[in-house]
Design a protein around this nucleic acid. Structure first.
Lengths: 249, 249
DNA sequence: CGGAAGCTTGAAACGTGTCAAGCACCGTGG
DNA sequence: CCACGGTGCTTGACACGTTTCAAGCTTCCG
C-alpha cells in the first residue's frame, strides 16, 4: 500500500513495526474529493483531522478585495489541520486544487495516539514544525527574491517534497498547478508568473509537457533559486556539502 | 513580579496555582543581553530554550546578496526556540534588536514539564501554533497588501501583542524598531518604509515621539490595515463583531 | 564639539501590475 | 465529425509602485 504519510514521517523518526501498522490503519479509509472544493473554511472548528493521500490542495486566505493568497501547498502525506483543536477556530481556508483522495481522522484517534505513542506524537509535531519552517522560507523569498528566483525556488521545494514521498521519477513529476495558482502562492500576477515560467524554460532549467514538469538542470536551477534544502529538515544534522546528495535520483 | 509568559499563556489556558508557580520559577533567573547580538545562528543545535522577558528580538534569514529578511518579531513572553530539539538544526537566526532580558531554560526542564503538566504543555504548543498563524498572516500581507497597509497592519499586530502582555498604556507603546528593521520585516527598502511611516502620520493614524508610538485613530488604522485579529488567537471562538472590543484600553 | 546613526526628501530607473487581445487545447453536443 | 465554448496560456503596451542613488538634516552621545 502506498502510504505517503508513513514515508514522509520516516524521515524524522525511526519507527517500529507497531507504528507502521498504526500509520497504515490511519490511511486505510480515504474518500475522493473533486478539484477546487473547500475542505475547511475560516472560522470552522473541524471535528476531524484531514490528511492528503493523493492530489494537490492548498491553504489560502481571501483578502478584502477578493484576491487570494495561497500560504501553503499540501501534497500527499501532508496534514491539513492537525492541531487546530489547540487554537480553536481556523484562521484560513483549505481547498483541493486537483481531484484528491483524503483521509478524515476523528480527533479522538489523534488524541489517543498522542497520549499512547511518543514516536508518532513526535513525528506529528515534526511535520507541524516543518510546515512552519516552510512558511518562514516562503516569507523570506517573497520579501527578498526576484520573481524568477522565487518561482525557481518553489519548483525546487516541490521537487524535494514530492521526492520524499516517492512521487518523482527521473527528475520529473506531476505539477498540476495553473499559473494562476502559482501566482497566488507567490503574490504575483498571472501575467508575470507566465513570463517567469517562460524564462525558466528558455534558460533550459525546466521543460513542461502538460501537467508534468521535468528539471533539466538541477544544479543550475538550484543555484539560480538560491535553494538550500535545510529548512525542509528532510534529514537530521545536515552538512552543507551534503546538499547535492539530495538531488540524485 | 512581571511575568509576560504567564500573562500571555493565560489567554490560551486556565491555569491553576501550581502552574503559575512553575511559570514564575521559570523566569526567576534572567540575563541581560545587549542590542543587536545574535542569540542563535542558523545551523546551531541549542542546548537551552530561550525566552524574551524584556526588549525586542527577531528571527531573521540572511540572503546570498547579504540582505536580511526578518521573519518574526519577538517581544516579552515569546519563546525563541521552544521546539528546535524536534527539528534538529536551526534554519534561521535569532538576534536581539534592543537590549533584552532573556531566560535560558535547560532543555531537560522543558522535557520534564511536557511529560508531567498537560496544561502547560498545551499552552506551549498553543504559543508555537500562534507563531505559525502570524507567519501566515505576514505572508498574506506581503503578497497582497500595499506597503502602507502592510505597515499599518504590523503596527496593529504589535499593538495587540504588546497589549496582551500589559505593555500598552492609553493606546501608546514602546516600538524601538528602526525604519531599517521595519523595512527588513516587510521586504521594503528603508526609503519606502520611511515614506509609508510619514503617510501614516500625515493621515493622523499614529504619532511618534522617540521610540514611543501612539495610535490616534484605532478604528481608522484597523480598517485601513484590513486588520482582523483572529489569527492571533487571543481569545477562543471569537465572533466578528467582538473585534472592536479588543481595542478598548 | 564632533561624529555616528537614523530620518527625510528628490529624481530617475526598474520590476511588476493592469488592460487588452489572441491563441491553444480539450471536452461536449449537434 | 466538426463546431463551439470554456479554460488556461501567451504576448504587447503602458501605468504604477517600489527601489536605488544621492544628498542633506536631525538627534544623540562621547
Amino acid at each position: 500500500m502506498f502510504n505517503p504519510l508513513a514515508r514522509k514521517l520516516s524521515l524524522a523518526c525511526d519507527f517500529e513495526d507497531v507504528d507502521r501498522q498504526i500509520l497504515d490503519d490511519i490511511i486505510s479509509q480515504s474518500r475522493k474529493v473533486g478539484p477546487r472544493e473547500d475542505i475547511i473554511r475560516e472560522g470552522d472548528l473541524p471535528d476531524d483531522v484531514h490528511l492528503v493521500i493523493e492530489g494537490f490542495a492548498c491553504r489560502y486566505k481571501i483578502m478584502p478585495n477578493g484576491n487570494r493568497q495561497i500560504v501553503a501547498f499540501l501534497v500527499p502525506g501532508d496534514f491539513c489541520d492537525l492541531h487546530v483543536a489547540i487554537l480553536g477556530e481556523m484562521d484560513h481556508n483549505i481547498a483541493t486544487l486537483t481531484p484528491c483522495r483524503m483521509v478524515e481522522i476523528p480527533r479522538e484517534t489523534i488524541e489517543e495516539l498522542t497520549t499512547s505513542n511518543p514516536r508518532i506524537t513526535r513525528a506529528f509535531w515534526w511535520a507541524t514544525l516543518v510546515d512552519e519552517a516552510v512558511l518562514r522560507e516562503w516569507l523570506a523569498g517573497m520579501g527578498q527574491r526576484s520573481a524568477d528566483r522565487q518561482l525557481a525556488h518553489l519548483i525546487c521545494e516541490l521537487y524535494l517534497r514530492l521526492k520524499s514521498v516517492g512521487l518523482v521519477n527521473d527528475h520529473s513529476f506531476q505539477m498540476p498547478l495553473t499559473q494562476q495558482e502559482l501566482g497566488d502562492a507567490m503574490g504575483l500576477s498571472i501575467v508575470h508568473t507566465n513570463r517567469m515560467m517562460t524564462e525558466l524554460r528558455t534558460r533550459q532549467f525546466v521543460s513542461i509537457q502538460g501537467r508534468q514538469i521535468r528539471i533539466l538542470d538541477v544544479e543550475g536551477l538550484t543555484e539560480f533559486a538560491q535553494f538550500n534544502p535545510n529548512y525542509l529538515h528532510l534529514k537530521r544534522h545536515r552538512a552543507p556539502d551534503e546538499v547535492q546528495a539530495f538531488f540524485g535520483d
